[in-house]
């Protein structure tokens, strides 16, 4: 009975909960009830469908950003030299 009640609640959750669920699906595996609820909700809810699609796009963009970071400018040479100097002079420095 409890399970049925929970399923009923998940399926009837408002957009606020569906948006939360859409986000959490990117961070944890939703259970079957949640999965089905979200899938059926976005069939008729334009707003949540867009939201889900757009945060998935963010996810892809962040993956690409991680690759692009490799090509981002490195620590400038002067800064690198200055940091090394500071570390050499630092009392806690190890020889």
């Amino acid at each position: 009975m409890n399970r049925i009640f929970r399923a009923w609640r998940v399926f009837n959750a408002p957009c606020r909960e569906m948006a939360r669920l859409a986000s959490e699906s990117l961070d944890r595996k939703p259970d079957r009830v949640e999965q089905m609820a979200l899938r059926s909700h976005v069939i008729y809810c334009t707003a949540c469908r867009r939201y889900t699609r757009q945060i998935t796009f963010l996810h892809i963009a962040m993956e690409q950003l991680a690759d692009r970071m490799e090509m981002a400018p490195p620590l400038p040479e002067e800064a690198r030299a200055a940091i090394k100097q500071v570390l050499r002079d630092s009392p806690g420095s190890f020889s």
Partner: peptide, 17 residues
Amino acid sequence: MGPEHWVDLHGDCLYRY
């Protein structure tokens, strides 16, 4: 292992972040 090595190894990554 000297601090120079540390800066060379992790400096770029920390800086980009």
